[in-house]
Amino acid sequence: MELYKQIKWLILIIPTLTIWIWEFVRHEYLLPYLSMDAGNWLSPLIVFLITLLLLTKLFAILETIQAELQHSKQLQAALQERENLAKELHDGIAQSLFLVSVKLDQVNQNKEQNEQLLSIKKTVLEVNEYVRQSIAHLKYPPEAVTVPGENSISDLINEMHLDSKVKVEYKWPITEIDLTVKEKLGLYEFLREGLRNIRKHAEEANHIRIRLETREAGWRCVITDNGLGFAGNPLLKEGSYGLKFLKEKTFELGWELDLRRESGRTTLSVLKKRQVEQR
């Protein structure tokens, strides 16, 4: 703000100071050599040249500062909205799910009903986990969310608390692709959900491979493991909220999500095709 005020004062002072200096030099030193008419013609010309050389640059700086201030206000408003939404989720859905989980713990029924209650409780806990993650993401502006690089992707792996016996290999040339903020969030969620599913469902898995493949037609991110695999289609399985959420998210981004079993490994991948410009 201090720079903004200084530039405004400079814009006001420079033309006045230019005229004063010119008139002083003209009357003190140039009057014997320069006619009055010529001096009157030169006065606006000199002010115009000074304006062109100096004031246009000051105006450009001023416009940049105003644009940054406007962008900052928009980010602040968006962040406030995200915080309000996070608070509503926490005060509403998250607390309600926690209360349901507590009440399920207090219910005593027969064996068959207990199995059903355990299944319901598991579902409630999974939904509660996704809500809590959504709340955590909403507390930060989108610009603060970054996709792990080659040196920091291990932080995400450690965050998922995988078994120490599981070996993880990754090839991650993230700098070779351009991602929007929304795409960064989508790719980050894809990595989290892929590793979470391996941790929870991939029995006997001891090797995970993560690859980000760049190509002329776009890029492809692949997560594979050597677990026992799955029965049916997990994307259609009742209660698979994480995968269903991921499928919806990738569909919104225009990505192709694929989950298959091949060569003794489970493969979860997402494909982003480069859009061809229409001529």
Score class of each variant (00 low, 15 high):
Glu2Thr: 08
Leu3Glu: 12
Lys5Asp: 10
Lys5Gln: 14
Pro15Cys: 02
Thr16Leu: 15
Ile19Phe: 07
Phe24His: 08
Arg26Ile: 00
Arg26Phe: 08
His27Thr: 14
Leu31Asn: 11
Leu34Ile: 15
Asp37Gly: 05
Trp41Leu: 09
Trp41Lys: 13
Trp41Tyr: 13
Trp41Met: 09
Leu42Phe: 06
Val47Thr: 11
Thr51Arg: 11
Leu52Cys: 10
Leu53Ala: 11
Leu54Ala: 13
Thr56Glu: 09
Leu58Asn: 04
Leu62Lys: 14
Thr64Met: 12
Thr64Gln: 15
Glu68Met: 08
Leu69Met: 10
His71Asp: 11
Leu75Arg: 15
Gly92Cys: 02
Gln95Ile: 11
Leu97Glu: 06
Leu99Arg: 15
Val100Thr: 05
Ser101Glu: 13
Ser101Asp: 09
Gln106Gly: 05
Asn108Tyr: 08
Gln109His: 05
Asn110Ala: 07
Asn110Gly: 08
Leu117His: 05
Leu125Gln: 09
Asn128Lys: 11
His137Leu: 08
Leu138Asn: 13
Lys139His: 06
Tyr140Phe: 09
Ala144Leu: 01
Ala144Ile: 01
Thr146Pro: 00
Val147Tyr: 06
Ser152Gly: 02
Ile153Glu: 01
Asp155Pro: 00
Asp155Tyr: 04
Asp155Val: 04
Ile157Arg: 02
Leu162Met: 05
Val166Ser: 00
Lys167Thr: 13
Glu169Phe: 04
Glu169Lys: 07
Tyr170Asp: 00
Ile174Met: 07
Thr175Val: 08
Leu179Gly: 05
Val181Ile: 07
Lys182Thr: 14
Leu187Thr: 03
Tyr188Trp: 08
Glu189Phe: 02
Glu189Thr: 12
Phe190His: 03
Leu191Arg: 03
Leu191Trp: 01
Ile198Thr: 14
Glu204Leu: 05
Asn206Pro: 02
Asn206Thr: 13
Glu216Gly: 06
Ala217Arg: 00
Ala217Gln: 07
Gly218Thr: 03
Thr224Gly: 01
Asp225Leu: 01
Asp225Lys: 09
Asn226Phe: 01
Gly227Leu: 02
Gly227Thr: 04
Leu228His: 07
Gly232Ile: 12
Asn233Gly: 03
Leu236Arg: 05
Leu236Ile: 01
Lys237Ala: 15
Ser240Gly: 07
Leu243Pro: 00
Phe245Leu: 14
Lys247His: 08
Gly254Met: 06
Arg260Ser: 13
Glu262Gly: 03
Arg265Asn: 07
Thr266Arg: 11
Ser269Thr: 08
Leu271Lys: 13
Lys272Tyr: 04
Arg274Val: 06
Gln275Tyr: 09
Glu277Ile: 07
